[in-house]
């Protein structure tokens, strides 16, 4: 097998990655969920992480989002370590500095139900970036227009459909102008007919050059929108390929078996 980092550098020698997982392992108790996973994400990359459930995809994403501390290895953002097993003081300080450069969209949206759509969007820009209110509102309105929900500005999340809630959640993440946007199975909690509207927004972001790391079960999205596909199984990266190559000619038997499930 190849070394993940070397492989990616070979793909895209220009520049340093925006964010890298370097040899990340994670154990919960005695349960090893990730085993030395290395994954660099370059600028404008749309990396899709696929694999069976329980393969560690979400845990990897949560380590990169700084929601979990790796048991081994580290997360590096533009050359600076932002998460290590010991979480030393300089690492924590570095993490605080880049915290809002990493956006995340959750499977269950996690909108704040006691705030309107607009309040959800301006909360972090007001409190974290300390933007003036009119400026935060103006950019929130632009983002709502972008995800097609201008008319829901003053609605509470509970009044929206799942697809609309997820689009608001994407707008909320974009409001901090992140350098990389992580998607944790963003369409898995949605009814099939509501997935499309979310996938369309994600596709549009990809086309605009947003750097994205997408954990997904949407093989079509990975195949047609992803610039790179990473296949994980049992806590390891088993295979990775550019563009649609992973789907056209999976190399490993595990990947072939995984992809068979999606054939009708």
């Amino acid at each position: 097998m190849f070394d993940g980092i070397g492989f990616a550098y070979a793909l895209n020698m220009a520049g340093i990655p925006i964010i890298v997982a370097e040899g990340v392992s994670k154990t919960f108790g005695t349960n090893q969920v990730l085993t030395r996973v290395s994954l660099p994400v370059m600028e404008r990359d749309v990396v899709c992480v696929v694999g069976p459930s329980g393969s560690g995809k979400t845990t990897l994403l949560r380590c990169i989002a700084l929601l979990e501390t790796p048991s081994e290895g580290r997360i590096v953002m533009q050359g600076t370590a932002i998460s290590t097993p010991q979480q030393e003081k300089p690492v924590k300080a570095a993490a605080r500095a880049v915290r809002s450069d990493i956006g995340m969209v959750f499977q269950h949206f996690n909108l704040w139900p006691h705030m309107t759509v607009l309040e959800n969007l301006i909360e972090a820009p007001l409190r974290v970036k300390k933007l003036p209110k009119d400026q935060a509102v103006a950019s929130a309105e632009t983002l709502l227009a972008k995800v097609g929900l201008s008319d829901k500005r003053d609605a509470y999340p509970a009044r929206l459909s799942g697809g609309q809630q997820q689009r608001v959640a994407i707008a909320r993440a974009l409001a901090m102008a992140p350098k990389v946007l992580l998607f944790d199975e963003a369409t898995s909690a949605l009814d099939p007919e509501l997935r499309r509207e979310v996938l369309l927004v994600m596709r549009q972001l990809a086309q605009e050059g947003m750097t994205m790391l997408v954990v997904t079960h949407e093989m079509n999205f990975a195949r047609h929108v992803g610039t790179r596909t990473v296949f994980m199984d049992r806590g390891e990266i088993v295979e990775e390929a550019l563009g649609s190559a992973f789907f056209d000619s999976p190399k490993t038997e595990r990947a072939q078996r995984f992809l068979q499930q999606f054939e009708d």
Binding site: M104, N110, V128
Partner: peptide, 18 residues
Amino acid sequence: VPRGHSEAAQVLGLTPLQ
């Protein structure tokens, strides 16, 4: 209060107190 609500806030950069 679902954990996800504060995780979303954490990712957006809100301090634990906020």
